[in-house]
């Protein structure tokens, strides 16, 4: 039957698509949740205390979270190239 069920990773670990990764500096975070709200992938996750962290397995590195952050608490950092630590 031509059917499926919603599940994570229907296109694999899309974190591998990333060229830049968002890094959250919690010292600047004011828990406004804009990054969480605008993240197209749902890869900004909320802790119990509403500080956020990133699901790097699936984050595609679009950078919307960094743009949305009013306090610049999210920084886009280039991924290391293949052959170095990431491989």
């Amino acid at each position: 039957m031509p059917i499926s069920y919603p599940a994570e990773g229907s296109s694999g670990k899309t974190g591998l698509w990333r060229t830049e990764r968002p890094v959250v500096h919690l010292d600047k975070c004011i828990k406004c949740l804009f990054c969480w709200l605008y993240c197209p992938e749902d890869t900004i996750l909320r802790r119990e205390d509403d500080y956020v962290y990133v699901d790097y397995d699936y984050c595609k590195g679009c950078g919307i979270c960094a743009q949305a952050c009013p306090t610049h608490a999210i920084e886009m950092v280039p991924e290391p190239s293949l052959g170095s630590e990431r491989a």
Partner: peptide
């Protein structure tokens, strides 16, 4: 019927299949 599409079933019908899976659906 083989499945129903409702909030309870959570079934998705017709998204992309691999060429091999597509072939086998034709075979079926």
């Amino acid at each position: 019927q083989p499945y129903v599409i409702t909030p309870e079933s959570n079934v998705v019908m017709g998204n992309i299949a691999s060429d091999e899976d597509y072939f086998m659906m034709r075979y079926s």
